[in-house]
Computed example of a mutant assay.
Amino acid sequence: MLEDLSTDPAKLRDLPHRTLIVHGREDLFVPLTSSIELNSLIKNSDLYVFGCCGHWVQVEQAERFNSVVMEFLAT
């Protein structure tokens, strides 16, 4: 899995910023395990998995997506 990342895992581990990772559980293009791997690599990250949602979380679940992003930015 790590070999599929476009960014060096060491650089991801060193990210100093809070990071929000969102993923649609039914995404047919990017497996959920990819986001779980990112979440484990990025120390200060939050992973939010949207059920009943495919690849375009921000479109398919726009209201919930906006709510999650706004809450993340507010903290």
Rank of each mutant, 00 (worst) to 15 (best):
K43F: 05
E71I: 03
R18D: 13
T19W: 02
V68P: 03
R64G: 02
V22F: 01
L41I: 09
V30K: 12
S34T: 15
R64N: 14
N44G: 09
D46F: 01
K43T: 11
T7N: 08
I21Q: 02
L73W: 08
F72G: 06
A10D: 13
L73M: 15
A10I: 03
L38Y: 10
T75G: 14
R13H: 05
E63L: 07
D46S: 12
F72K: 06
H23C: 07
K43L: 12
L20S: 05
V69N: 04
T19F: 00
F50T: 04
G51P: 10
E63S: 09
H55G: 03
E3M: 14
L2S: 11
N39T: 03
R25M: 06
M70L: 15
V68S: 06
L20M: 09
H17F: 13
Q58N: 10
V57N: 05
V57H: 03
H23S: 07
E63R: 08
N66E: 10
S40I: 05
L38S: 11
L32R: 12
Y48W: 09
H17T: 11
S67D: 12
E71T: 12
A62M: 06
K43V: 06
F72Y: 10
L47G: 07
S34N: 13
M1Q: 11
M1D: 12
F72T: 04
P16S: 14
P31R: 12
V57K: 02
L20F: 06
F65P: 03
D46L: 08
E60D: 07
I36H: 08
N39M: 02
S45M: 07
F72M: 09
E60N: 04
S6L: 15
L32K: 11
P16Q: 14
P31C: 03
E37G: 04
R64A: 14
S67Y: 09
H23V: 03
N66C: 10
E60W: 03
G24N: 06
F72D: 05
F50D: 06
I42N: 00
V69S: 03
V59C: 05
V59M: 12
